[in-house]
């Protein structure tokens, strides 16, 4: 009898408590505000895994409303073909056109590969340095953003970017660029290009975390960044990057 009442009492306590606890848990998970200071984002790109399908380019344009014309890219994929005589051909791949078979018949190809490109989210961003009105800036979590309400459209940042990662958005007449899908990553989602990459050629994460796919990538590979001599300190690093890539 005692035991029974004890169980009953326990149940009576536990049930509403449990339900309440569940509710509490759910609400705290949803309401937890994003803390930028706890993150510092970077990306790793495994050249050897990229198959040049261009799904990342499409997903980026879809997710971020990038104009569809082939002059505006937040991310793009280059195809390098290096021939035996040292001649290097580079193309910006257009996944809608099946290409590459012409090169298959070429005996002269020494090596060939794809290189995805995007804003390097530099630690020393030259674009931020030159913006006359401070419309572009580096956030606490290390992403370079543009304020489309303040940008005056002088395009100095576009000139200053060594990687060609910026363009003038024809709709807003302001500078535009990759944001690492800031609206996604702050909700715990992956950037759209990383989400859809079928071969995990792109790895996104927190550069400071001790255990994450990005940390593993950085531990297991010899890394390189683009144009290191310019001291922009990119946060996008490449494994097996070929010396011909600029």
């Amino acid at each position: 009898m005692e035991r029974r009442t004890f169980v009953q009492k326990l149940l009576a306590l536990a049930l509403p408590g449990g339900v309440f606890g569940l509710f509490l848990k759910k609400s705290t998970v949803q309401a937890a505000p994003y803390e930028a200071a706890k993150h510092y984002y970077g990306m790793g790109i495994q050249i050897d895994k990229c198959i040049g399908c261009g799904r990342c380019v499409e997903a980026c344009k879809e997710e971020n409303d990038v104009p569809r014309e082939p002059f505006y890219f937040r991310t793009w994929v280059e195809r390098y073909t290096i021939k035996k005589d040292g001649e290097v051909t580079v193309q910006n791949i257009d996944p809608r056109i099946e290409s590459g078979l012409e090169a298959a018949s070429e005996r002269q190809v020494l090596r060939s590969f794809f290189v995805p490109k995007l804003c390097n989210q530099c630690d020393h961003p030259p674009c931020v340095q030159v913006c006359p009105v401070g419309a572009t800036f580096k956030t606490t979590d290390g992403v370079v953003l543009v304020d489309e309400k303040r940008c005056i459209g002088c395009r100095y940042c576009i000139q200053a970017c060594p990687y060609g990662a910026r363009y003038l958005n024809p709709k807003t007449e302001t500078a535009d660029k990759c944001t690492f899908c800031y609206h996604r990553i702050t909700k715990g989602l992956l950037p759209a290009c990383v989400e859809v990459c079928p071969t995990q050629a792109r790895i996104f994460g927190d550069v400071r975390s001790s255990a994450s796919p990005l940390t593993r990538f950085k531990r297991m590979n010899k890394l390189h960044v683009l144009k290191p001599s310019l001291n922009t300190e990119p946060k996008v690093s490449y494994s097996n990057l070929d010396g011909e890539v600029r």
């Binding site: 040049g52 799904r55 590459g100």
Partner: peptide, 11 residues
């Protein structure tokens, strides 16, 4: 085919 067509640049 966009992923699986033969392309010498693919790994």
């Amino acid at each position: 085919v966009r992923c699986h067509a033969f392309n010498p640049s693919r790994p």
